[in-house]
Amino acid sequence: MNCKNVVRELSNYLDDALDQGLKQSLEVHLEHCEDCHLLVDTTKKTIQIFCNSEPLPLSEDVRTRLHDALLKRLRRPKD
């Protein structure tokens, strides 16, 4: 396993989709390569930050407009 292979398998590793042998040789590489260790760590954090981020509340104006428009259309009798 070299650094280029780590980049290639990075997503599979982070998604826990590597077979045991490949996962082990990648982890052996990580123990000795500081750059790859940091790359894996910060890419993992990148995914977690997006995945854990809460969407901001809609402004009252946008929310009112969305609900009013939906209710208006949904309550309209079907042709």
Binding site: K4, V7, L39, D41, T42, I49, F50, S53, E54, L56
Partner: peptide
Amino acid sequence: VMPREIEDWGPSPEERYTQRELAEILARVI
């Protein structure tokens, strides 16, 4: 595809930025 800069990150981004600041950063980079 090869990463350009490999740096350690500081304290948890959630601690460094408010929820709004973080949401804006994420929206900008995506």
